[in-house]
Simulated assay, not measured.
Amino acid sequence: MAAPMRRTLVALHRATCSSLKNAEASLDLRHPVPLYVPVRTKKRYFVPPAAGLKRKQQEDPEAAARAAGLVFRQQYFERPINISCTAGIFDPYVPPEGDARLSSLSKEGLKQRTEQLRQSAASQLAIRKIKEHDPQFTSRGFAERAREIFIEAHGALTRFDKEKLHSLVTERGYPEMTRGNRYKTISWRFIESLEPPKVVHARCPDMVTKGNLYGQVTVRMHSKQILAIYDRFGRLMLGSEEQPKDVLEYLVVERHLVNPYGRWRLHGKIVPSWAPAKDPIIKTVMIPGPELKPGQEFEALNYEVPKPKAVQWNK
Rank of each mutant, 00 (worst) to 15 (best):
E132H: 15
E148Y: 10
W274F: 15
V219P: 01
P197T: 05
F298Q: 04
K269F: 12
K198Q: 09
A67N: 11
S120K: 13
P49S: 09
A51H: 11
K42F: 10
R179V: 11
V219Y: 00
A153D: 12
V305I: 14
E171Q: 09
Q119G: 13
N302A: 13
W188G: 10
L165R: 10
P32F: 05
Y36P: 08
T178G: 08
D206K: 06
L125H: 10
E176S: 10
G88K: 00
I151E: 12
F190R: 02
R220N: 05
K164T: 15
I191S: 07
M237F: 01
A67I: 09
D161Y: 09
K293R: 13
P48V: 12
P48N: 11
P205A: 01
I127D: 00
L70E: 03
P244T: 05
S106R: 08
L257A: 13
T218F: 01
R172N: 15
S103D: 11
G289N: 08
K245Y: 13
K131Y: 01
A65Q: 08
L168R: 15
D206N: 12
V71R: 04
Q136K: 15
T41A: 04
R263Q: 14
L12N: 01
N22I: 08
N259D: 15
A68C: 03
V247N: 05
F160N: 11
K129M: 15
E195M: 09
L236A: 06
R30A: 11
V94H: 08
L102W: 03
K245S: 13
A275I: 04
L27Y: 10
V252C: 15
P308L: 12
K198H: 12
F233E: 00
L238T: 02
A23I: 04
M1T: 10
M207N: 02
S240P: 13
F142V: 01
E299Y: 06
G155R: 01
M1H: 09
V37R: 12
L157P: 13
K278F: 02
P96G: 02
N22D: 10
L157W: 09
A143S: 13
L117I: 04
K42D: 13
Y183A: 02
L238S: 08
V33A: 02
Q312P: 00
D161C: 10
F298M: 04
Q112V: 02
S273P: 09
Y93E: 08
R44L: 06
L248Q: 05
S84G: 07
V208E: 02
R263N: 12
G88T: 04
K164D: 15
F137Q: 00
T158H: 08
Y45W: 14
H222W: 11
R147F: 11
I81H: 00
P280T: 01
H133A: 15
K54C: 00
T158L: 01
S139Q: 07
P260C: 09
K293Y: 03
S104L: 03
W274E: 13
K43E: 12
A65S: 04
Q216C: 00
A277R: 11
E195H: 08
N259H: 06
L12P: 03
V258S: 12
N259G: 04
E242P: 03
T185A: 06
I149V: 15
E24G: 05
R79N: 06
A100L: 04
P61H: 09
K283I: 07
